[in-house]
Design a protein around this nucleic acid. Structure first.
Length: 575
RNA sequence: CGGGGCGUAGCGCAGCCUGGCAGCGCACCUGCCUUGGGAGCAGGGGGUCAGCGGUUCAAAUCCGCUCGCCCCGACCA
């Protein structure tokens, strides 16, 4: 491809809308342009890279035995009502009506569609297992799109859905997907880790996230250098130190704390450390009211809390509820005397502590010297708080590390979460009709481009791994008006094309500096330069974007040499 | 949804406080010159100053409303 005939609008200055490197470079390099908040067009360079990622994903999915399909973006409300998610899904689900006033939405995910499809067609265990996938557009009306392709509203996703007769079969496919994902991300040149994750509203209990290390990532990876444990922040557990507190168990004593409500206020009013306070939080769930008791210096992890209780709805109780249950307004709540009114859930950390302070369930009063199991009996003791810096690894006791990452893949075991409500069943060998056991597996394909750039750039621009670079070679004719330079460049261009190498030939009537700047910006891995000096002495220059080392090669050997370098570069990303 | 910021040529911005010719750099077009790291000179084209309403002799500028975009937070299959 000749640059003079191409569409590659590069920007010299950083667009004001872009905050992080990947977003800036995608815009400056002419890879993407924004149409509306979180909605982007892919320009030729961006589309070429995106297609390369899509092809890697496709090859590895096919290799794993998954089968490609192509599902609708526009989906009728009925199937969402069937699965029960029409009302559960929030504003991310973009809804609209057709001309006949029927409800539709843009697909943010495709569980409903795939289950609806399969339930009509697959009847027998003999047709299982089945793993169907697709690569195309999803739309989620995100509250806050940001960082370019990292959190877009419209984005490209690979999603796969597997159907099984039993959990063992699901396990097998789940592991295959795990392997396929590992190969995909390696081929994309990504440095990543796999973490245990909460499965969230999509359901199921086990899930793993594939996280790319990136300082600008939105997710927090909690991991152990020593034993390799890793989890996302919501899921991460940690070691509870054995606390044996000295001293006697004292008798509770009310203290007057006028208008002193928050942990902060109580701590300074009574002049005690925050971790001596028992933070008491009342929540409303579908199974009734719950009182969570955690150390004053910790934060309740609602995901853990939900899992502990086996509930899906968890909302902070409002003022009236608190008043009715405890007899006092929020700010003075404590566990004593509430055993019969709410479920008391005590965090592990507090289990061995003595003589704590909590609210007195009486306006303007707190109680000193509360000891769990002595002055109140929790119904449950569990891990319900967020991990914090300084906490130790549950498995080996080493200090946990905190890093940022970008989630590029997520695999779930769904079980029968969708097949059951939607009545998707098959006839098993024993003649009994059973709901499919399902798995689902997503990859944020367009987001991968941003993730790759976050890991591969310098002050001059992007440094693409060759596997996903829009072109393999950038050929620079330093002065296109110099006949010799032009003729030799033309020949090299043809030679490279003949060899099937993807070459972008900068034949513009521009100064060399402009071409070098653009070459660095768009980050093509191999650059070949034909200049005046070289023409006189009979060589071209080959330079790698990553190393910037220059080697001189006689003109008639350039094709051979570039081919060789190119193969070596590819080898690097073989899984 | 809460807090903050911004909206002036394709991009980056000044002008606004203190109302009075709509500007600068880059990009674009023409010519000359130049051609190894975003050259130089000269000439030129391009504007609903986000939109609507108000105040005023006069509004990019002051006031009100609306919309869009960005950042922080909440939310996030």
């Amino acid at each position: 491809m000749r640059v003079s005939r191409y569409f590659m609008p590069t920007l010299r200055e950083k667009p004001q809308e872009a905050e992080i490197p990947s977003h800036q470079l995608l815009l400056r390099g002419g890879f993407i342009r924004k149409l509306a908040s979180g909605i982007y067009s892919f320009l030729p360079l961006g589309w070429r890279s995106l297609k390369k990622v899509m092809n890697i994903v496709r090859e590895e999915m096919d290799r794993s035995g998954a089968i490609e399909v192509f599902l609708p973006v526009v989906q009728p409300a009925e199937i969402w009502q069937e699965s029960g998610r029409w009302n559960v899904f929030g504003k991310e689900l973009l809804r609209f009506k057709d001309r006949n006033n029927r409800d539709f939405c843009l697909g943010p995910t495709h569980e409903e569609v795939i289950v609806d499809l399969v339930k009509g067609e697959v009847r027998s265990y003999r047709q299982l297992p089945l793993n169907l996938y697709q690569i195309h557009i999803k739309f989620r009306d995100e509250a806050r799109p940001r960082f370019g392709l990292i959190r877009a509203r419209e984005f490209v996703m690979k999603d796969a859905y597997s159907f099984h007769r039993d959990w063992d079969s699901l396990e097998e496919t789940y592991n295959k997907m795990y392997e396929a994902y590992t190969r995909i991300f390696k081929r994309c040149g990504l440095k990543f880790t796999v973490v245990e994750a909460e499965s969230g509203a999509i359901g199921g209990d086990v899930s793993h996230e594939f996280m790319v290390w990136a300082d600008n990532g939105e997710d927090i990876i909690v991991w152990c250098k020593k034993c390799g444990y890793s989890a996302n922040r919501e899921r991460a557990s940690f070691h509870v130190p054995d606390v044996i507190e000295e001293g006697d168990i004292l008798d509770p004593e009310e203290v007057y704390t006028p208008n002193v409500r928050t942990i902060e206020e109580v701590s300074s009013f009574l002049n005690v450390e925050k971790n001596r306070l028992l933070k008491s939080l009342i929540y409303k769930t579908e199974k009734g009211f719950v009182l969570f008791l955690i150390p004053g210096d910790r934060e309740l992890n609602e995901a853990k809390a939900k899992r502990t209780l086996g509930v899906t709805d968890l909302l902070m109780a409002d003022y009236e509820d608190v008043l009715r249950i405890t007899g006092s307004p929020p700010g003075f709540v404590g566990p004593v005397g509430l055993e019969d009114k709410v479920t008391l859930v005590l965090d592990r950390l507090v289990g061995g502590m003595k003589n704590l302070i909590s609210g007195a369930n009486k306006e303007d009063y707190h109680v000193k010297n509360i000891t769990p199991f002595v002055h109140f009996k929790p119904h449950l003791v569990a891990d319900i708080v967020f991990v914090e810096k300084g906490d130790k690894c549950l498995a080996c006791g080493s200090p946990l590390e905190f890093s940022r990452g970008i989630e590029v893949g997520h695999i779930f075991k769904l079980g029968t979460k969708y097949s059951e409500p939607m009545g998707a069943t098959f006839l098993d060998e024993d003649g009994i009709e059973k709901p499919f056991i399902m798995g689902c597996y997503g990859i944020g394909v367009s987001r991968i481009l941003s993730a790759i750039i976050e890991q591969n750039y310098d002050k001059d621009g992007i440094i693409w791994p060759i596997t996903v670079a829009p072109f393999e070679v950038y050929l620079v004719a330093t002065n296109i008006n110099n006949r010799e330079i032009r003729d030799i460049s033309d020949k090299i261009y043809e030679e490279l094309e003949r060899r099937g190498i993807e070459v972008l030939y900068d034949d513009r009537n521009e100064r060399a500096g402009v071409k070098f700047k653009d070459a660095d910006l768009i980050g093509i891995p191999i650059r070949v330069t034909v200049g005046e000096r070289g023409v006189k002495e009979g060589f071209a220059e080959i330079r790698l974007r990553e190393s910037q080392n220059v080697i001189k090669i006689p003109f008639d050997e350039v094709g051979e040499k570039v081919d060789e370098i190119r193969r070596e570069l590819y080898k690097r990303y073989e899984p």
